[in-house]
Design a protein around this nucleic acid. Structure first.
Lengths: 208, 208
DNA sequence: GCACGTGCTGAACGCTCATTCAGATAGCCT
DNA sequence: AGGCTATCTGAATGAGCGTTCAGCACGTGC
């Protein structure tokens, strides 16, 4: 059992405690994705991260702490996803089109609807989660409103009720996504995107 | 300690075992409503029903059994709610209008969106719940399709895409309901009903 | 009047799981 | 070299909770 190259045997603490923490955080998100908030155990997280249970509690103060951290990680990634994806597009029509695809499951955070479902239910009972989801939802709706306003300015859109259209389109995405998240046989990512896009055409009175 | 009038002291077992069972079932639904499926404890149910924990397990075989029973109770009530409410109305426009109000929180089962959220997440991990929610959703969508078909026949509606409209309107209701269930400051029952109705007007191209 | 089954209770059992803790290891400063 | 601290581990602890169980009450059939 030689000392090895650089990082040693036994506990591979050598360096990268931060990298370790990161790995645990990712693992936490994964576990929530598969087991749900309610089903997430410290041992699950430890196993998924390839560490001991002790370390999970060492980096985050408790299981709840780890779950909260995962929540804010999600929030950050959502913002990044959204911002990056929308800035790549040029006109309002293209942006809107891209939002349809975004909802249908691109991006690491935005399209992960199982995670959203979990967040919603957690928000039902946990004030922290409630705030996170409200902030996320505001953000998403604001982005939609912006795109709509942009399209109205450029005469691409002509909605009867811009605010109502924004809320409805945002909510419609949520509702369609539920079926997707639950593997409803009648729903696919393509169908979701199409159904949503058609609704947008109708709501915003777009001309083909 | 006289024998009392009829039902005796101690355990009030006298009669009505069936009534007792019913009370426990109601209590289970209540607990799920407030604590969620994941947070429901046998002791919560017993307390809410005013019985011992033992009795809960006596009538249903396990906690899971009680939760399952609550689920099917919900399913039955949903069907009853829906059928009764729709048969009271005459024309397609009135029926549709009523569906908007239904979603906005009438009826003991249909409008209870917190319960729906809970069901959705349970469906994510429990096959029984998955089947229940799928059946419920099919039913709701079928009712919507029927009303739409009726309205097309009577020339009250003129949708471009009847099937798409049905799915979208059903999904929109779910999406709006999420905000209502989560006490989003921007959503009220009235607003939900209005937003949904406006969408229906648009989708079905109704004339005022 | 007496056994018996059903309804019901409260205490006890045992398991799962978050959290604590007593170290082990390794870099770092002096 | 020799502490000191940060990182990490595996086992121990203990609380919470579902489930089991021994037994009480009471109506029913013999």
């Amino acid at each position: 059992m030689a000392k090895g190259t650089l990082s040693s045997s036994g506990s591979l603490s050598a360096k990268a405690p931060e990298e370790r923490r990161e790995r645990i955080l990712r693992a936490t998100v994964d576990v929530v994705r598969t087991r749900g908030f309610a089903g997430a155990r410290v041992s699950d997280i430890a196993e998924a991260a390839g560490t001991s249970q002790g370390l999970v509690l060492y980096h985050f103060r408790s299981l709840a702490g780890a779950l909260d951290a995962a929540l804010t990680l999600l929030e950050d990634e959502f913002y990044d996803d959204l911002a990056r994806d929308l800035q790549e597009q040029v006109g309002p029509v293209e942006r809107l089109r891209h939002m349809a695809d975004l909802g249908a499951g691109q991006g690491p955070a935005v399209g992960d609807w199982r995670l959203w479902l979990e967040l919603w239910v957690r928000a039902l009972h946990d004030p922290d989660a409630r705030e996170t989801r409200e902030s996320l939802d505001r953000r998403w709706r604001a982005a939609l409103r912006e795109v709509i306003a942009e399209g109205v300015a450029s005469a691409d859109f002509d909605p009867l009720d811009p605010d109502g259209a924004a809320i409805r389109l945002a909510s419609l995405m949520d509702g369609l996504a539920i079926q997707l998240a639950l593997d409803d046989p009648d729903m696919t990512t393509q169908r979701l995107a199409d159904l949503w896009w058609d609704a947008a055409v109708l709501e915003l009175r777009m001309q083909p």
